[in-house]
Structures are given as C-alpha cells and as structure tokens.
C-alpha cells in the first residue's frame, strides 16, 4: 500500500467507519419507512396514499444535495430543532432512499397474486395478518435484488454528506489530499474501496436472494 495511504490510514478508516454507520442507519430507516409507504400506497389508504405520492414525487424531483441542505438548514429552522451534520445526513439519506424503496416494495406487493390474500382471509386471518404473514413476506423476497441495488446506490451517495461537513470517507480523503496532495493515489484508493464494498453489498443481496427467493 502506498505510504501516503498507510500514514493516514487511521484517519481514513475513521471516515470509512462514519460512512458505514450513515449507510447502515439510512438503509434500516429507509427500508422501514419505505415498507410503510409502499404498503399505504398499495392499499390506497385515503389521504395518506396521496400525501406519500407527493413525497415520492418531491424526492425524485430534487437533487440529493438539496435534500441534505433541507435536512441540515431548512427543517431545523422551520421546526425549531437542533441537529448535527451527521444527524441531518442520516435523516436526509433515509428520507431520500425511502422514496425509491417504497416504489420497489410497492411493485413487489403488486406482484403477489390476489388469490393468496383471499386464501389467507378465507382461513380466518384478518386483513392485517394476511398482509403481514403472507403478502408482505412474499413481496419482500421477490424484490431483494432491487432493494440491494438501492442499498448500493445509497452507499455511494453517502459521499455527498461531505458537502455539509460530515467527514465520512470521501470527505476525510479530501482532507488528506489537501495536506498531502497526492490526488491520483488517494482518490484511486477511495474509488477502489467503494468498489470493493459495493461489490460486497450486492453479494450479500445475491446470497439472500438465492436462499429466500420464492420459487413459483
């Protein structure tokens, strides 16, 4: 490994750790929120479904960086609360990825044959149980590859957090570069690290899908 990397490795790794944390929380939060939004839209719950449709339209039509600015500067001013750059990044990425995940999950829900829900109801399960025990599990299993694609996208997008002052991996690498000025080595190392980790995330997705895919 080049000396400039070795010398700064502890600092770079602490940045990478921040990247992993932000990505993990946003993936967990975004999946939970995306599931709720996907189900509400699938069931066409009055008012809520329309509100969520607006939300998805808004996220899709707004640059990610602007979303982060909204969560860092806009919302705290509007709702009078204090936030750290880290907190704003997690909230921003969660809200961002949830919109995409919601649409993917909704696609999964639509792919489940209506007859299965009917069969569940016919055995005396309530609508909520039929959804939770039959429809949602099948839908989620079917969309595992798509969800993991979104997770990979999100993992790369976390680098944008450096703009609002979060010293995650890319941000800390740029600081190192400012001090050392070895852009090819440093940026090359950063790119390679993202590549390996993204590959790892999609491998997990492939393994999960191989185990859990619903065979029909």
């Amino acid at each position: 490994m080049p000396e400039v990397i070795l010398k700064n490795l502890p600092f770079l790794l602490s940045g990478l750790r921040l990247t992993a944390e932000i990505a993990l929380w946003s993936i967990l939060g975004g999946t939970a929120l995306g599931l709720v939004i996907g189900v509400v839209r699938h069931l066409r719950v009055p008012v809520l479904a329309q509100l969520f449709a607006l939300y998805i339209g808004f996220v899709r039509g707004t640059p990610l960086l602007v979303m982060l600015f909204i969560c860092y500067f806009g919302l705290p001013a509007l709702l009078a609360y204090k936030t750290s750059a880290y907190g704003a990044a997690v909230v921003g990425f969660t809200l961002f990825i949830a919109a995409y995940l919601a649409e993917d999950i909704r696609t999964g829900l639509r792919s489940v044959r209506p007859g299965l829900a009917q069969a569940a109801l016919a055995t005396g399960l309530t609508r909520a149980q039929a959804l939770r025990l039959v429809v949602v599990p099948i839908a989620l299993r079917n969309v595992i590859p798509t969800l993991f694609n979104q997770y990979v996208r999100l993992f790369k997008f976390t680098s944008v957090a450096s703009v609002i002052g979060v010293n995650e991996f890319t941000g800390s690498a740029m600081l190192v570069n400012g001090r050392e000025f070895a852009p090819i080595t440093i940026i090359g190392f950063v790119a390679l690290t993202y590549l390996v980790l993204c590959f790892a995330i999609s491998s997990v997705g492939r393994l999960l899908y191989a185990r859990l895919a619903v065979r029909t």
Partner: peptide
C-alpha cells in the same frame, strides 16, 4: 366466521414461501 367455513380454491393458492 371464516374459521368455521373452510374454502378450497380452483388454483390451490398455497403460500409459496
């Protein structure tokens, strides 16, 4: 009520997972 009246469908509708 449905637990007391069982139903069998044309296309079986077994839970595939």
């Amino acid at each position: 009520m449905r637990t007391r009246v069982g139903m069998v469908f044309q296309h079986f509708e077994l839970y595939p997972h």
